[in-house]
């Protein structure tokens, strides 16, 4: 669970890095080249399988834990106060399931479309023709409803991540009186960076990109 989670966090960081190029390179050249690289490089293809494996493991354990944990308390309390120090930690399965739904939607919109449906816009870079993934992104985010949904989902992802990093470290046994406070702060910063970074894309696209 924790190891798969940590792996997914690294993926998110790479993903964010690539996406952010969209904002700084209006020609979308870098983004499209990177997207092409990600879609065709054989090594990345291997990683793609690992990535999906990681997601599946994470989902599988998440759901297993949920059911095991629910079985551990067959009768709920009548009154239950939040006594935990970390609020989001209590709702990991909830945010997790919504994020899963979002992931499906997200994959349908981009990855699935590029891979199986086709009809992608095209662009020519240095004489070679590439699928214009960047344009697809920009066009999608010009829709206010679509962007709002994305922002909403991304916020939930942020809540999920707020607990994730430090929790994963605790689960693999890394807790130290000197470093744990730092890891906890770092976990929150990481969650904020990833969330704000991803949210910046639809927001910037919606407000600043020409239609």
């Amino acid at each position: 669970m924790s190891l798969a989670g940590l792996f997914l966090i690294t993926f998110l960081l790479v993903h964010l890095g690539l996406n952010l190029t969209l904002l700084f390179d209006k020609s979308r050249e870098v983004f499209n080249l990177a997207a092409h690289f990600m879609a065709t490089n054989p090594l990345i293809k291997v990683f793609e399988v690992i990535l999906f494996g990681g997601i599946l493991i994470h989902i599988f354990w998440g759901i297993t834990l949920f059911f095991q944990n629910r079985a551990a308390r067959p009768q709920q309390y009548y009154v239950s106060n939040n006594s935990q120090q970390s609020v989001f930690s209590k709702y990991m399965i909830h945010t997790g399931v919504i994020i899963l739904a979002f992931l499906v939607l997200h994959l349908m919109d981009f990855w699935f479309k590029a891979k199986f449906i086709g009809g992608m816009p095209e662009v020519s870079i240095d004489g070679k023709t590439y699928e214009d993934m960047g344009l697809l992104v920009v066009e999608k985010f010009k829709s206010p409803i679509f962007s709002a949904i994305y922002v909403g989902f991304l916020l939930l992802l942020g809540f999920h991540l707020d607990h994730a990093f430090q929790s994963a470290l605790q689960s693999v046994g890394l807790n130290h009186s000197k470093y744990t406070p730092f890891f906890k702060a770092f976990s929150r910063i990481l969650a904020i960076v990833i969330t704000v970074g991803f949210i910046a894309i639809p927001v910037v696209v919606y407000f600043t990109f020409p239609s």
Partner: peptide
């Protein structure tokens, strides 16, 4: 039949 730890830290708090 105890549940799993999901690091909510409610235990420490209480």
């Amino acid at each position: 039949g105890f549940g799993n730890c999901t690091n909510t830290y409610a235990c420490e708090f209480e």
